[in-house]
Structures are given as C-alpha cells and as structure tokens.
C-alpha cells in the first residue's frame, strides 16, 4: 500500500484551470454548429440533413436549437457549405429567468449534488463522473456528489425520462429541501434527443419537473457540465440555447474544428 501516495504525487497536477482560465487541450469538446448566413438553398439543405430538427432556416440563414443537437456531424461532413463550428464548451443556459435567483452565498463553497439517471445511454453519466476525476475535480469548486436527496441542493438529471424513471425522479425532486435547483444535462434530458417523446419516454426533464439550467450536448463534455453547475450558482454567465442566423458571432475561444 505504501506505493500509492508517491505514485499519486509523481503524477502531478492534471486539473484544468477552468473557470479561471480557458481550457485549450485538444479533444475536450466536440463543439456545436453555429447559426449564420447561408447561400440560397444551402440553409434548407442543412436543415434537411439534420435528423433532430436542430437546424432550421431563418432570415437567409440557419438557426440552431442546441437543445436538439446530437453531434451527428451530418451538417458538417459531406456538405459543400457546412455551418461555422464553435469549438467551445460554455453552453449551459439558465432557463427560468428571474423566477430562480442563483443560490445564495451560503452555498458558494459547499454544494451537494444528487445525480439521477433517467434513462441515459451511459455517456452523459460517464462525463458527469469525470467531474470527480483529477482532470476536472469539481471538489475544488465546492461541488460534491451526494447519494441522498435529503442533503442535495442541486439535482442533475441525465436521460429523456423513461416511463419507469418518471416516478422515482419526481420523488427524488420532492424529497430535496428548498432552495433547490435542477440542471438537465444532455440533449436527451433537454429534448428527448434521438429518443424523442415516445411511448416509453417523456422527451425531456422539463415536462416532468421544473428545470433551472440546461446543458446541451450529446453528451455534453465535462467542462460544459461544470459550466452548468457554475451557472446555476451564479458564478458564470449563462449561454444561449439558440444560435440565431443573424446574431454577430461571438469571438472564437479556441482553435480547431471537427
């Protein structure tokens, strides 16, 4: 057993500097398509290729609904005019506006998270799990996973909410003390993703319990989920869930495209 401590020390610090600085390592995010102008007909062609209806034509261009994007890359590959690609990861958006104030300063350094799997495919959960690993280490920011709703401040939900998980999810939410916040993680939790609303699933968390913050992605990379936790506590600004055709593009944060 003696060897473990030196082995751990020898490994050094691997933890990302986000949110104090941008994470620029390659492969931390799949990116998302960005809305923008498109040549005549090109926008329609992109919208036709999008299997989940995330891309729609608008004002001589395309708009992208990030709740629906499932990273299939069908708009990006094998087309003459692919949309711009935003390589970042700060995608989480607050969706309750003024109705939910950020949790107060009492929560700033110790926040308990209950993670509920409402039918995910395994990827979102794996990425949530990475937050507790050395690379992302959310503990340094005061976030901890708890196994019980009674001591949870934040409910993180992944998956489209299957018929079987609806009741356990509602019970877990109701068992949490107020104030509480819900973070829906991943395209399935936001819109049902490729599973959609169906006979077996609800097509997203918002139809079952109130959602405060949505984190797009299929799965969202760990940094996006971390951003979601920072947004729900008011420590980072919220992003937008929709990339319109006509908005001025934000400055690119990192190099690289798919």
């Amino acid at each position: 057993m003696r060897g473990w401590v030196p082995a751990g020390l020898r490994t050094g610090v691997r933890t990302t500097r986000y949110p104090d600085a941008e994470e620029t390592a390659p492969g931390v995010s799949p990116g998302l398509p960005r809305g923008g102008r498109a040549a005549d007909g090109a926008g329609g062609a992109l919208a036709d290729r999008c299997p989940t209806g995330a891309i729609v034509t608008e004002d001589h261009g395309i708009a992208v609904d990030y709740r629906r994007c499932v990273h299939c890359f069908r708009c990006a590959r094998g087309v003459p005019a692919p949309p711009d690609w935003q390589p970042g990861y700060e995608w989480a958006a607050s969706v309750r506006g003024d109705a939910a104030q950020p949790l107060g300063p009492a929560f700033a350094r110790s926040l308990r998270i209950l993670v509920v799997d409402a039918g995910d495919c395994g990827a979102c959960l794996r990425e949530v799990k990475q937050l507790s690993g050395p690379y992302y280490n959310m503990h340094r920011l005061g976030f901890f996973v708890t196994p019980t709703p009674r001591s949870a401040d934040i409910l993180v939900v992944v998956g489209p909410v299957t018929a079987h998980m609806r009741s356990p999810l509602v019970q877990a939410y109701e068992a949490m003390p107020a104030p509480k916040r819900v973070v829906a993680v991943g395209a399935c939790a936001l819109s049902g993703g490729v599973f959609g609303p169906s006979f077996a699933s609800a097509g997203g968390v918002a139809g079952v319990i109130p959602v405060d913050v949505m984190v797009p992605g299929n799965p969202p990379p760990p940094l996006a989920i971390l951003h979601g936790l920072l947004v729900v506590t008011g420590r980072r600004p919220s992003a937008a869930l929709r990339s319109p055709a006509a908005a001025p593009p934000p400055a690119p944060r990192a190099e690289g495209a798919p």
Binding site: G27, F73, A76, N218, P219, P258
Partner: peptide, 12 residues
C-alpha cells in the same frame, strides 16, 4: 478520441 474523430465517444 475527440481530437482524432471530433467526438469523444466516436459518434457520427
């Protein structure tokens, strides 16, 4: 995987 293929779980 992400830098090789664009997706960390090899989608698409």
């Amino acid at each position: 995987s992400g830098s090789l293929t664009g997706h960390r779980y090899l989608f698409g």
